[in-house]
């Protein structure tokens, strides 16, 4: 592996200081399950790795006035095991449960998953349909970015080079329901060929999101007033929204079929859950 300096931070101030100083030569190290693979493959060669895991604040996982706060360094397994997840947020645990393997999930963080901004990242779609916000900090202060504005391109986010994600905030679904599905090449741990999430509010507003069918996970929330059971119209809208490509994991054609198949199953589940 290429050489770098490992810097361990115990406070946010320390981390943003370091990041400001080393700017483009530094990378935040969370679980490292994306970053260390990239470094190993020679795709990235940062001079400094800033380990943010010791920062206590980033490990918060709590409900605050109906708002779920997931600290950026919360691991995917911690998220799965969280007992106080509000009703209606199933999409997030369902996605987390099929992300990588158990060992990887012990390291992989929620912040790392979205900051890595892979088009196939499994937490993208559920966070999109649940209307999550990304809270960040830099020397210039704190801000929140709606998740639908967060992803810019393949592996590119709207984060500034000196900015750190501190938490992901998810508003209460208030009686709404959600679900997530993933298609991979095998049943075991694998990246998504297509992943998908859907959520409906109590009054029937549908949001759907898909991964691995465009440069970033994409949100579709305007279905021209189609009803939940009007699958054909909904699928039509989705087909216009996606722009899949052929790659080593699947062809564009298959991805389209899978968007349709997943959308149907998701709509079915959502309707069942609304009634249940």
């Amino acid at each position: 592996m290429a050489t770098f300096k490992y810097l361990r931070c115990h406070s946010l101030d320390e981390a943003i200081d370091l990041l400001a100083t080393h700017a483009r030569q530094a990378r935040i190290l969370a679980g490292g399950t994306d970053l260390l693979v990239s470094i190993r493959d020679g795709l990235e060669s940062p001079r400094y790795l800033i380990d943010i895991k010791p920062i206590a604040e980033l490990h918060t996982l709590a409900l605050e006035d109906g708002l779920l706060r997931i600290g950026a360094s919360v691991t995917v397994n911690q998220l799965i095991d969280f007992e106080h997840l509000p009703a209606g947020m199933d999409a997030i645990t369902e996605a987390a449960s099929c992300l990588a393997s158990y060992q990887i999930r012990n390291r992989a963080t929620v912040g790392g998953n979205i900051c890595n901004a892979s088009p196939a990242c499994d937490l993208g779609p559920p966070l999109l349909v649940l209307g999550a916000k990304v809270e960040t900090i830099s020397k210039r202060g704190r801000r929140t970015i709606p998740i639908e504005d967060f992803f810019e391109d393949v592996k590119v986010t709207r984060l500034e080079p000196d900015e750190i994600v501190t938490a992901i905030l998810i508003p209460s679904p208030r009686g709404g329901v959600s679900t997530f599905l993933k298609r991979s090449r095998i049943k075991g741990h694998d990246l998504a060929v297509v992943n998908a999430a859907g959520a409906v509010t109590k009054d029937g507003n549908l949001r759907m999101a898909f991964g691995a069918v465009a440069p970033t996970p994409i949100l579709v929330d305007d279905f021209n007033g189609a009803r939940l059971d009007d699958t054909a119209r909904i699928v039509d809208v989705l087909m216009n929204a996606i722009s899949p490509i052929d790659d080593v994991r699947a062809s564009a054609v298959y991805r389209k079929y899978m968007v349709e198949a997943l959308a149907k199953k998701i709509l079915e589940t959502l309707m069942n859950r609304l009634q249940g």
Binding site: R185, I186, K187, G188, H189, D190, L191, V248, R249
Partner: peptide, 16 residues
């Protein structure tokens, strides 16, 4: 060769 890694050359896991 496009899939010269276990990331993209998959073999059966315990779930398969």
């Amino acid at each position: 060769l496009l899939n010269a890694s276990l990331t993209d050359y998959k073999i059966p896991t315990a779930k398969d």
